[in-house]
Structure formats: C-alpha cells, structure tokens
Design a protein around this nucleic acid. Structure first.
Lengths: 230, 230
DNA sequence: TTTTCTATCAATGTATACAAAATAAAAAAC
DNA sequence: GTTTTTTATTTTGTATACATTGATAGAAAA
C-alpha cells in the first residue's frame, strides 16, 4: 500500500519494536507469513490454503482466511486462476518495473534525506554503515544482510517522512525474495559496502541531486544482478 | 500498497472495466466502501462497524469483517484506540508528508514518461488535456475533476510501468478526500488547466528533468491549497 | 462533587457448520 | 484409446453461535 497507518506500523516488526500486546491469531499468522515470505522460506509461486494454515498455526480457518485476505489486499499474495492464493511471482519484465519503481522511491529518499539531514539520522546511518563494513570484511553474509537492511532503513527514516519511509520499506520487503540469493561472494559484500560510502557521502554533502544520483547508481547494480539471475 | 497484483487491479473499477464475474459479498462491500471513501461520502474519521455494515449490505458479519480487514491492510481504514475502524484521517503534518510522497512519485512518473513517450501515450495525454481545457472554460467543476483525473492517469500510464502507475493512482485515490473540496472557482480551473499545458510540453520535450520539475511545480500548488484548508 | 469500582453491555475474535463452486476422479459413450 | 459426462472430493464463501475483551454507565465511597 502506498502509505500505511499507525496501527499497521505498530503491528509491524520492521524496525519498530513490537509492543507487549498479545496479537490475535489472525495477526500472528499474517506476520509469520510475511516473515517467511520476505526471508525466502516461502518462495514465489508457493500455494497457501486456508485449511493448511489453520492446522499449522493451530487455529480455525477464520483467522487463517483473514491473514490471507489481508496479504492479498497488500499484493504480497495473489490469487491465481486456480483456487488458492500464492506467493506473488513476477516475470522478468514485471520484476524490472518493480525494481524501477523501488529505484525511484529510494532515489527520492536519498534526495530528501540530503535536504533534511539531522544529527541523529546522520549518526544512525554512520553506525549502520560501520556494521556493514565490519560484516563485509569478515565475510559474514547473514550479518551483512542485516546491517545492509539497517543502512537502508536509516536512510529512509532520515527523510523525516514516515509515509515515504514506509513506502520504501514496503518495496524493500516485497523485493526481498528476489534479492535474497544475491550478495554471495565476499567481494560482492565489499563492493556493496563501498557503494554505501559513496552514497553516504553524497547524502551528507547535503547535495540532494548528487545524493539521488548516487542512490540510483547504488541500487542499479543490485537490480542488474537480480535480473541476470531471474 | 506499493504495487498491486493483477487480481486486485481487476477487482478495481479504477480505469479498468470490471468484468462480468459476480463478486463475492466481501468484494462487493470492499469496493462500495472504497468508492464512498474516495468520493468523500464517507469522510475521514467516520467510524465503521462490522454489524452495521453487515446490516447495510444485507450480508453476515463475516464478509463485512473481511472487507474492513482488507481495507485496513491497505491503510485506507485505520483502527483507532477505541474499538472499531475508522476512515483514515491525518494531521496537517501527516497530510504534508503524504502529499510530499505523492509529489515525489508524480515527479518520477513525469520523468519516466518524458523518457519513454510513445505516440499512443502522447495522444492520450493530449486528449485528456483538451477535455480539461474545455471543462475549465465552461466552468464545469464535475467535468473538470473527471478530465483532470484522466489527465493524471494518462501521465501515469505513459511511464509504461504498471507498478509505478498503480502506485501513483493509489496515492491519488487516497488523497482524494482531501483534494475533493478544492478547485472551486472557474479561475482555479483555468489556472490548473494552464499548469497542465506547461507540464505537458515539458513531458513532450522529452527533457526528463524539466518534466519532473514541472510536475513538482504543478502539484505543489494543489498541495498548498489543501494544507491551507485543513 | 468527584472518584473509583463494578456490573452490564456492546463489539470484536474465533470456531464451526453449511452451502456453493470448482477441480479432480471415475464412469460411460464414442 | 480418447473424449465426454457424471460423480466425488476438495476448497472457498457465508452464516451463526459462542467466547472474550474493552467500553461505559451507574452505584458506592471519598
């Protein structure tokens, strides 16, 4: 969805810490599926049926159905021509368009971030980047993925625009399954981390044009890898 | 949602003609609510409860609940701190952020459209603009609103990127309630139509930078009016 | 008069039953 | 053996009943 509301953001364990409130079964299932999809446990094209989910999560069909319905409303799942809903899968053409869109959004984030940079935001970005570098040098892929995520999120937040940030996060989450396999070799990690440095400097220079261009360059390389592999 | 899937797009009577398949009760309710919200029949802050909807649409609570759930998943409705879900309403601050985001997306559309302009797209934009001018000169507000919508949609489509276009459409639909009241006087209509001309020319010039700047200028004026009034 | 506690009520969350629709499977016809 | 038709099974859509939780009003106490 283009921009999300507070409650969704709260029920969303993306960045924000989940509060102690016990979730409903429907929310539990929705979040679990979201997690599995963005982590690539459920791969594109995988079928999900209500009864199966109900059994798996030890609940009745009603909450399972609600979770599926909400996820399809968000476009994360699609209902195919056959019965059942599926994890969305895209053609190369569609993937290209999706990444182009994400690309534009990220560039906009970088531009706005460059215009409005606060000390706090700057330090968050720097911290995340430090973690990226460290992970890249030790060749720890999992750690790098995590740190890279934090780096991007920090830039999104640096816009000071919650809706912009959430939009970018959404795209990032949704393209997760297609970016997941990449970033394999230690060289890739280092290259990515170096790209961050350039991007970061452009944002910190408060030159919004340079920042957006830099973000474009940065994400383009990622997209090319994805499209090559799909 | 950032990008929508085919099925959602089909069940969406926005531009695309709805096919003859009989909708489920849940879909019927969802669409009706969506329509009423974007048309301003339901205003921000309005409460919606399952039982009431069920009665109104002569169905049981289950499909009513599903519709509400899907709409909240899309961020169109929010569940407040009290019980019940509400049509999303935003503070001036939030509205500003939302419009800024839409702004960026529209600018990106203009830029891409300028890069990839096809004959067909160009003619669609021109047709819509002609309708805008005509409506503006006759001072017909309803007609102008319709033509203006078509003009913007034509630009979105001109990107050749379905996801980009749907994203922009979503934002446009969601900000509808806040833009609805504006564009009152005949002078406003003419001013808006003139703004279109400039924007259109920049897109047709295939100068992507000029096009995006022009779009920014164009939508900025609208935003200012909205923020003044809210 | 104000505050707090409790009881009541209303609305949500979940389970289950049933109906309708679609797909798969089996049987019959060619 | 292939195609068509019929039957069976699975799955979705809807209704309804029940449980649970949050809100609210009224009573009791300060």
């Amino acid at each position: 969805m283009p921009f999300r509301n507070k409650s969704t953001a709260i029920s969303d364990n993306q960045g924000v810490k989940v509060e102690g409130t016990k979730l409903s079964a429907a929310q539990r299932i929705e979040q679990a599926l979201l997690e599995e999809i963005s982590m690539g446990v459920l791969s594109p094209g995988q079928r999900l049926d209500e009864t199966g989910l109900a059994r798996r999560f030890e609940a009745s069909r009603t909450p399972a159905r609600e979770a599926l319905s909400r996820l399809t409303a968000q476009g994360i799942l699609v209902q195919g021509e056959k019965r059942g809903v599926f994890v969305a899968e895209y053609s190369r053409e569609e993937l290209g368009q999706i990444f182009e869109t994400m690309h534009e959004i990220e560039a906009a984030c970088a531009r706005i971030a460059a215009q409005r940079l606060t000390f706090l935001a700057r330090s968050e970005i720097e911290t995340a980047q430090a973690a990226c570098l460290e992970a890249a040098e030790s060749g720890d892929r999992a750690a790098y993925a995590k740190a890279n995520e934090a780096f991007h999120q920090a830039i999104y937040r640096a816009t000071g625009n919650r809706y912009m940030a959430e939009l970018a996060s959404d795209f990032r989450r949704r393209t997760g399954p297609f970016r997941a396999k990449k970033l394999s070799s230690p060289e890739d990690l280092k290259a990515s981390a170096l790209g961050h440095v350039e991007l970061m400097n452009d944002i910190f220079s408060e030159d919004s044009l340079a920042a957006s261009k830099s973000m474009r360059r940065h994400s383009t390389t990622g997209v090319m890898q994805v499209l090559k592999a799909n």
